[in-house]
Amino acid sequence: MIASETGSGAIPMIKLKINIKIKAWPRLGRSEAAQGYFLVAPPFLYALLLLAAPLAAIVLFSFWTQDYLTLDTTLTLKNYREALSDPLYGELLLRSLVISLAVTAATVLTAFPIAYFISFSVPPSRKSMWIFLITIPFWSSYLMRVFLWKVILGYNGVLNTTLTGLGIIDEPLSFILYNANAVVITLAHAYAPFAILPIYVALEKIDRSLLEASRDLGESRVMTFLRVTLPLAMPGVVAAVLIVFIPTIGDYVTPRLVGGPNGLMIANMIQTQFLKLNNAPMGAALAVLAMAMVTAVSLVFLFLNRRYLKGQK
């Protein structure tokens, strides 16, 4: 605080004081945008150097070729041609896509009633406890959880031994391990909280008086759900779909542990190309194709959703 000026002698003193303050705290006067850039710079540079640059490098790499240990840096589409013409790669890509879509559908469809239950039936004071309950399994080691599904679903696994022990089945079920079904079950389990949370948040945002208004205007419970609740929950469903679909397509552990030879996915092939076959460019090309596929499907989905929401109005 500046002292009140009482005589001419005090003035230089005050000026000095102000000047010192300004020099010591130059940021006080800096513009808002500059402060924003200054603050966001460290995480942004980090992401630029360790995410954007490597992703660009992968794209570049996919146009190179490698023969054992010699890297040929001439740009060529050879990897892509091979990836798209070799039925092995094509089948893996397609299977990854189908499995991911199945996982997404299964996860989101089973998650919606849970999110709805927590948002509409659970008393407000116990909502965070339910959310906590649902997130706990997610925080235990992913590797362990996938492995435990193998233990549950195996030929001599927990499910089969229990069912035969109880006399419900005579022979162990074999269609539940080392195939795509097992991958779908395991991934649906792993991504459950990712689907429940966004839908729950969207449902929580719905003003309850809107539902009462709909009932008041003569709609039944079911029609109210279809005409009011569901459209308003759509942003959450969209977020859930994307957040499940995108990472599952690149999952490595699950297909490897419970998928068997017919349940392997593209990530396993990428890993093989990089670490076993020493063909990093081919692996890079497959990674780029997988990313392109994810992006394309996500965009189609977003587009359909926008059309759907427009139709609602």
């Binding site: 605080m1 500046i2 009140s4 705290w25 006080l28």
Partner: peptide, 15 residues
């Protein structure tokens, strides 16, 4: 403020 120009005087030292 009180006869002093407030240009470049930051908020924390204003009276």
């Amino acid at each position: 403020i009180d006869g002093k120009d407030m240009k470049r005087v930051p908020a924390n030292v204003r009276p």
